[in-house]
Design a protein around this nucleic acid. Structure first.
Lengths: 239, 239
DNA sequence: GAAGTTCGATTGTCCGGACAATAGCCCGGA
DNA sequence: TCCGGGCTATTGTCCGGACAATCGAACTTC
């Protein structure tokens, strides 16, 4: 515990606990020791210790039971569902992703895009069309729409990183997203782009992303090759 | 605020606030008023008020800004991603779901099922195969595996409600799940079951569900007609 | 008029304490 | 033996206060 650090004490503690769980120093199923004693031992107050523990409970790493104690979850826990870009996902999986920008222009919004972004139909919006590759093989076709004036996107930057990272760097605080995941058969044109035969099953995702003021900042229509990609994630039950 | 009620004060407050937001009495984008004054007005302490507000921040309904205040999010918020059964989803959408139980037996676990559930290969597991219909039309084919002895499932009950509801009623506390969502082409047999031609795109989901001790309590392989169903959900960005 | 500075407002962090609710255990009684 | 009651441990809830960090706006200065 470093009291001179600017990082909050409860956060320091939660990180230490998380690391201990990760490394197996705190065995799954083991009790954590009661809060009062733990606080005394660390020289912290009980509310601070509780805040640290609570953050790990929210992450699904710990379970509290009144009258019993706090236990380490016997975890299959990997990664919760996040608003992450496909780029980051692939990079984390060691797939060395690449991007080919097919289009980076502004166009009048279609009715569908206008409705999703909450702008007038025909208003200018940024349109970005990309092909995402892994190991040189096409993985997905991504088409994104952004309100004009929010951000200007350099094609070279788009080829070397994900869209969400660029948006965050531009000071946009992403807050929530509404998603729909489905499947459909590939048209001839889609098949050619992705290297799949016509009629092959494709995984589709449409996503509208909002910032913390509730403004829609992005609308994306993505198509993945079902033979090469699936969404994997973890979700927690809200108690 | 009812101090004699067994329901916690912070929870009472968060529910009142949520209702006020829902009903529009608290306009999107409006400030909530500072915590100190709010606490004084309600006769509560600041920590209690903070706890109520925090729970709504976690739900994505409010945003806090240091030095500014707490704002109601301009929300497109509907429903976060939950561990819900397809049955509940369809019922909420007014689709009048029906279930046809195709199989309800115990069998030795295959290698895949044994690995997912963490039991020995060949150990007895419950196998449930169901066809889910909406408006008399097939929507999905659900195949679930459960460790033997966890629960005995009445076929009649399974036809009238969802599996998760039955598990919760049996005292199992669902905690987290690991999911994979993909797509594939229908085999001839699958197509026939669901009323789709062979080769039609299908949406697939595999899910392993864990209880709060980390034990796997269910493994499901689900197949949805892509022409009639897509997953829709909301997700929040973890700050 | 523009840029930098100060200041008030508001949330963030942390403390110490008090009592309530619940789960599990031990023990006694039937 | 079996069942229930009481005891203890532990988390859940709530209070009141203190100071720090940050944001925005008003103010000052050039």
């Amino acid at each position: 515990m470093d009291r001179s650090s600017p990082v909050p004490l409860y956060f320091q503690l939660s990180q230490q606990l998380e690391a201990a769980i990760e490394k197996g120093r705190l065995a799954p199923g083991s009790l954590l020791g009661n809060e009062i004693e733990l606080a005394g031992r660390l020289g912290l107050s009980r509310p601070t210790v509780r805040q640290a523990i609570q953050s790990l409970v929210d992450k699904g790493l710990l379970v509290r039971r009144r009258g019993v104690g706090t236990q380490v979850v016997h975890s299959q826990v990997k990664r919760p569902l996040e608003l992450s870009s496909l780029y980051d996902d692939l990079e984390a999986a060691g797939q060395r992703p690449a991007t080919r920008v097919l289009r980076n222009t502004t166009e009048p919004a279609t009715a569908e895009v206008a409705a999703a972004l909450g702008v007038a139909e025909g208003a200018e919006v940024l349109v970005i069309e990309r092909l995402r590759l892994a190991h040189g093989e096409p993985m997905a076709h991504l088409c994104n729409h952004l309100p004009a004036g929010l951000l200007d996107l350099d094609t070279a930057l788009l080829e070397s990183t994900g869209l969400y990272r660029l948006m965050r760097q531009a000071g946009i605080t992403l807050h929530s997203a509404r998603q729909a995941v489905g499947a459909r058969a590939a048209s001839a044109e889609e098949g050619e782009r992705l290297g799949e035969p016509e009629g092959a099953p494709l995984l589709t995702m449409q996503r509208t992303t909002f910032d913390d003021t509730g403004r829609a900042v992005e609308f994306g229509s993505h198509v993945y090759r079902a033979s090469r990609y699936a969404f994997e994630f973890q979700l927690l039950v809200r108690p």
